[in-house]
Design a protein around this nucleic acid. Structure first.
Lengths: 237, 237
DNA sequence: CGTTCTTTTGAAACTAGTCAAGGCCGGTGG
DNA sequence: CCACCGGCCTTGACTAGTTTCAAAAGAACG
């Protein structure tokens, strides 16, 4: 369950990280930068808010999330981190500023750690690398824009549809969708905290989608049965 | 009403833009990069979604906003742009990708335009400049994180309190708060679109805050009367 | 001044939240 | 092998916050 990352030369998802092109060109260079590989168990905190991480990570396997916590316990999940995603890419921008959010493992997780300074060197090494990096940052920004629009202006069912389609698309990109089925280890209260809803309501909405024959969840997997209608809901609601 | 920006040497807010330090060191260098100064009237579109802007801007006077529009007309304001803010800083990252959002003037606005390539040169010229730039981007990212948390997890009154305090703080930084009073030209439906609420509800909530003696709005200005209680509401609700 | 835009207000409808209980399932220990 | 437990999902009844719709009252504008 807690599989450690292999050598970079065997890694299938390194090309999706911030150092994508560098990795594709020669996995060994990246491998050399790797300080260590770590594993966390489901629900463990990976980075605390306020911390000043000295390293950046690549999520090799498992899911994690970035979130903010309110003094009274309310939580908002800012983004889900999927295999191949880089964690705290922001760290490559400015030197060790305290994190305004925390990162937690959703499933068991294994990740590869890199020294910020070393990774910055890699990223700045070529125009192509730099371009990939800036695109990653940009993608993150527009993703936050979209999420805000979702939570601000869509009702529960629309937010859910968006979430499901978004995750499916991201996994698909990485070749992690097999015959329409993909991992979906989110608990309903993770979904609630991500979409700004309550568990109870997420549950009702999810049951609704299932009964309507739009999705088929089960044992940590998910499958979209009626993409057309789901997309329609995603934009309409 | 539509005051054109003066020479950079007379500009009071240039130091808050992305090119902050470069500007402080020598306003003339920046002035030389400036292609033109433009003005827009209140409510005019400055940049359309899908556009590939070839320039970046500094908002010299007036307010604007970044927003996304849904096919059915729903709107989500992503962020407000205040005097001194740089517009489409993201443009300095990757070359001319189509904007996923639009920008609109809220009040009459005047702005200074710079060629992206030239501005990129300025930003990359020194470590200090680059640092300011990356910090700007980072600040924008964490601001989006906070906004998502607000809209996702706070009720109307809390969102409003946050918004007011945030804007006051940003204006104060730039020396635009005079004896506790500051410009606040937002219409209630701008606020609604920013906070993910309806005008009617924003109105009721606003009236509530006023009647409770927490804020004193009037003629496009605002004043916080009871900061303690307002902050309390901002975190509690 | 009439026109238009924005703010206010009210009543009714609804979406989502709260609280509380029960069900399912996998894991653990006897 | 089975009973018990804890975690998560499901459901119901009730409540609250917000939206909708509609209309009136003010402000702003030409």
């Amino acid at each position: 369950m807690l599989e450690a990352p292999p050598k970079c030369s065997r890694c299938k998802i390194g090309s999706f990280a911030v150092y994508g092109p560098a990795f594709t060109d020669s996995p060994q260079t990246i491998c050399k930068q790797r300080i260590e590989t770590t594993t966390y168990r489901a629900r463990q905190i990976i980075l605390r808010s306020g911390e000043r991480p000295s390293r950046v990570f690549t999520l090799y396997s498992g899911w994690a999330c970035r979130f903010m916590q309110f003094p009274d316990g309310r939580r908002q999940i800012l983004s889900f981190l999927l295999p191949g995603d880089s964690i705290v890419v922001e760290g490559l921008c400015a030197e060790a500023s305290p994190l305004p959010f925390a990162v937690r493992a959703i499933t068991n997780v294994s990740l590869c750690a890199f020294q910020i300074s070393a990774m910055r060197r890699v990223v700045l090494a070529t125009d192509r690398n730099l371009d990939t990096f800036t695109r990653t940052v940009l993608a993150q920004m527009t993703s936050m824009d979209r999420r805000l629009a979702d939570v601000g202006r869509r009702r529960a069912i629309g937010r859910l549809a968006q979430l499901i389609l978004d995750i499916e698309a991201r996994l698909d990109q990485r070749g992690l969708v097999h015959e329409g089925e993909f991992d979906f280890p989110l608990r309903q209260d993770d979904i609630a905290d991500a979409l700004g809803l309550t568990v109870a309501h997420v549950n009702r909405t999810l049951v609704g989608l299932r009964k309507a024959g739009l999705i088929a969840p089960g044992r940590g997997k998910l499958r979209v049965l009626d993409r057309t209608r789901l997309q329609q809901i995603a934009v309409d609601e």
